[in-house]
Write a protein that binds this DNA or RNA. Structure first.
Lengths: 238, 238
DNA sequence: CCTGTTTAATCGCAAGTTGCAAGTAATTGA
DNA sequence: TCAATTACTTGCAACTTGCGATTAAACAGG
């Protein structure tokens, strides 16, 4: 049996893209990776990594996200999560367009764009990036996506995807605090994390000129852990 | 200045749709509204409400979701939330396709499809619908979407959007329990809800042949409330 | 070699929340 | 008038968290 012709003709289809907000924590600051556009509209403006779905190359949306990231920066993203989809007649001056927005988390040990991308891909502090004139509606996307990340960090183990292969609990706590923007009680934090199986304690310690701290790795067998309570921060009990 | 031609040609664009999982609670059971397809592929099979983005009629994705819902059932959805977007080369036998999936919550007082839709739109218990042969990947979408709803109900005030204009706390608790699938401690539930501003107490009571219960309305000035703790259910403290 | 400093890790507890059970209250129907 | 049913309130044991204090493991400097 032959299939009926598709009822959405090609000419009536929106343009379809993927955008990917790449986060990392560098020097205790949340950073975002931006790329510089070449073509109009918005030539030479910084923007979020992304591009069109290629129906010949990409098998699904995540494949598009990964392909565009590697094409534009030379970096690939071990952790990729869908944030939301925006589609409207207004966001691109040329046509109806849809973009599915992801965010990626990158350990700061894997940050460097490859040589041929150094000029057109760059890390910015999030607070700086939000206040730059970015292409399209990317400043707002960035802000909303960061808000989502900030929320999720309160009740999940997401920040472990920002850590290098081994790390200490104090380093992990510092990353949590960097994203949330407040201090976390050290006792509560350790208890919270060690009451789960999200980390595996190694035999190694990190030797600096202080008391050596135990080193941990992320438990690769587990997905993101969802806590039943949010981190509540200083004096929030009432 | 004229804009550069769009770099994603029309013929290379995926088909672009919106799907909308419509939930309600009827007789203490979570239900979902399905419609019967006419055209191939999957003729005469039940499916989730949805359809293609119309770039001439729709200003954005939510407009598509609302338009398709009214076209197919005569019902409109006061509460609409984006769930996720699926896009791949594999989900439609004809072409690369993307769908942005929403879910809607409908009070059971607003359930009836209009007369001309009665035959092709019908409410099913969720447990039945999940086990029916639905078009495309709709059974899996349904299941995943219900899982999302179940999760969100543990830490948000979402179920108030399933209530009629006035309702009692016991009725609200019953809806929470229906979705979660477990009982909730009555004292904890009342305290949790009444410690927020999500409901407004009315002067009225619901008079049945028992102690009259106070009637509440949803506070229309507030968005969904996010609790800092999940509902934890029987003997979950540890 | 000893000591001070810094950071990691642990201990103790007051304050607050929740789950459970019991009690009180407001109605209707028999 | 009273029993039954449901709504609503009270009380409390069990548990968790935030905060502060203490102990421990290192190194650098004297």
């Amino acid at each position: 049996m032959t299939l009926a012709p598709h009822s959405q003709s090609h000419i009536d289809r929106p343009s379809t893209a993927v955008d990917n907000v790449i986060f990392s924590v560098i020097d205790n600051d949340l950073h975002v990776l931006l790329v510089k556009r070449g073509e109009v509209p918005f030539p030479k403006e910084w923007s979020i990594v992304g591009g069109f779905v290629d129906t010949h190359k990409d098998n699904d949306l995540e494949a598009t996200a990964q392909r565009k990231l590697i094409e534009k920066t030379g970096i690939s993203a071990p952790y990729l999560e869908q944030f939301k989809t925006i589609g409207s007649a207004n966001r691109d001056p040329r046509c109806w367009s849809i973009t599915t927005i992801y965010f990626s988390l990158l350990p700061f040990s894997e940050l460097k764009p490859t040589d041929e991308h150094v000029e057109a891909a760059q890390w910015f502090k999030l607070e700086e990036a939000i206040n730059m004139p970015l292409a399209f509606d990317h400043a707002e996307i960035l802000k909303d996506c960061a808000d989502r990340l900030r929320s999720k960090v309160l009740y999940t183990s997401l920040p472990v995807h920002l850590m290098p292969e081994t790390f200490t609990l104090s380093e992990l706590q510092k990353v949590y605090e960097t994203i949330i923007g407040e201090t976390i009680d050290q006792k509560s934090f350790r208890r919270r994390i060690l009451n789960t199986d999200i980390l595996i304690e190694t035999d190694m310690t990190k030797q600096t000129s202080k008391r050596p701290a135990k080193l941990y790795i992320r438990n690769p067998e587990l997905d993101t852990h969802f806590f039943t309570r949010n981190i509540e921060g200083p004096n929030r009990q009432n």
